[in-house]
Amino acid sequence: MNVMREEDILTGGSMSLEEATDRVASLMSRYGNLQGAALIEPMVHEEFNGKITMTSSFGTEAAALLALVAEVDANLPIIFLDTRKLFGETHTYREQLVDQLGLTNIKIMRPDENKLKADDPDGMLFASDVAKCCYLRKVEPLQRALTGYDAWLTGRKRFHGGERDALPAIETAGTRIKINPLAGYKPEDIDDIFEHRALPRHPLQAEGFLSIGCMPCTDRVDPGTTDVRAGRWAGQDKTECGIHYII
């Protein structure tokens, strides 16, 4: 497995806001009715060849998109944000999936140590300013990781609800383009991918975790809970970490 260092990450510019908006309109007219591997393949090999990456949390549903991507191009760069607050089980699961799927280009991005020392010296920022904690540990590292790319694949889905209800297959992300191959998938579609490809489940899923992020902000949910993200920032007026708002 090729785990790239931050200093090895590609540099370069991306599109203007106007160019990104026009490109999305063009792509939606040609590919907007596609999903899954049928959408991934032309994005990776034709439209953004060499200029596209993928983000993955290696959470409870992550293996579904990772498996589809691996079948299209196992060397596609995959960004994994190691916030320094993740469950140990997530790291173990990542290694398991990388080996099983033959993924060869994992880019592990971590928070800037100097910024952590300045703004979160005791590692407890999540308790006083959860938005800033997410920014330091996820948003800013992803901004660095996306340098040099014009597009990125995400595993977001409409059935997660909230701000994802009307998620398009292709959208602008500031000066980049975001592709959501699983936007229209249902829970049973995700289950089918796991079953037909014999994919392992995240070890914490059996313990009641439906969506898994950082340890301090991820909780178990009651049996029968249908809101997939109910355990994320439970009891707070927050449903997203912020990485899908970056420009």
Score class of each variant (00 low, 15 high):
residue 190 I to A: 03
residue 191 D to A: 15
residue 129 D to I: 02
residue 120 D to F: 05
residue 239 T to H: 01
residue 136 L to I: 08
residue 192 D to Y: 02
residue 139 V to I: 14
residue 87 F to V: 08
residue 98 V to D: 00
residue 223 P to G: 09
residue 143 Q to C: 08
residue 204 L to H: 07
residue 8 D to H: 02
residue 228 V to H: 14
residue 94 R to L: 15
residue 239 T to K: 09
residue 28 M to S: 12
residue 218 T to D: 12
residue 35 Q to G: 02
residue 59 G to A: 04
residue 129 D to V: 02
residue 113 E to F: 07
residue 98 V to P: 02
residue 40 I to V: 14
residue 24 V to F: 00
residue 87 F to E: 05
residue 76 L to G: 01
residue 153 L to I: 15
residue 212 I to D: 06
residue 191 D to C: 03
residue 220 R to E: 12
residue 44 V to C: 10
residue 183 A to T: 07
residue 121 P to R: 14
residue 56 S to E: 04
residue 230 A to D: 10
residue 24 V to H: 05
residue 243 I to L: 15
residue 217 C to S: 07
residue 59 G to N: 08
residue 49 N to I: 12
residue 63 A to L: 03
residue 222 D to F: 10
residue 167 L to G: 13
residue 37 A to P: 00
residue 220 R to N: 00
residue 77 P to A: 02
residue 10 L to K: 13
residue 193 I to R: 00
residue 102 G to R: 01
residue 100 Q to W: 02
residue 126 F to I: 08
residue 67 A to E: 07
residue 97 L to N: 04
residue 118 A to V: 04
residue 207 E to V: 04
residue 31 Y to E: 11
residue 7 E to Q: 12
residue 222 D to H: 09
residue 40 I to G: 01
residue 114 N to T: 13
residue 167 L to T: 11
residue 148 G to H: 11
residue 182 L to I: 04
residue 7 E to G: 00
residue 203 P to T: 10
residue 88 G to Q: 04
residue 95 E to Q: 13
residue 216 P to T: 01
residue 145 A to P: 09
residue 85 K to E: 03
residue 182 L to V: 05
residue 52 I to H: 03
residue 157 K to M: 13
residue 175 T to N: 14
residue 109 M to T: 01
residue 118 A to K: 15
residue 203 P to L: 12
residue 77 P to D: 02
residue 137 R to C: 10
residue 118 A to Y: 02
residue 150 D to W: 15
residue 162 G to C: 10
residue 72 V to R: 02
residue 131 A to F: 08
residue 187 P to F: 13
residue 216 P to H: 06
residue 157 K to A: 07
residue 246 I to Q: 05
residue 156 R to P: 08
residue 104 T to E: 13
residue 81 L to C: 06
residue 165 D to H: 09
residue 72 V to Y: 01
residue 211 S to V: 06
residue 94 R to Q: 09
residue 74 A to M: 03
residue 2 N to P: 10
residue 213 G to C: 07
residue 194 F to M: 11
residue 35 Q to R: 02
residue 91 H to E: 11
residue 101 L to R: 01
residue 20 A to R: 07
residue 224 G to T: 07
residue 70 A to D: 02
residue 98 V to W: 08
residue 121 P to Q: 06
residue 171 E to W: 09
residue 109 M to Q: 11
residue 234 A to N: 09
residue 177 I to R: 04
residue 112 D to P: 12
residue 26 S to L: 12
residue 85 K to F: 15
residue 127 A to R: 13
residue 89 E to R: 05
residue 70 A to R: 03
residue 216 P to F: 08
residue 207 E to C: 06
residue 41 E to T: 14
residue 179 I to W: 02
residue 148 G to T: 10
residue 72 V to L: 02
residue 158 R to T: 10
residue 106 I to F: 03
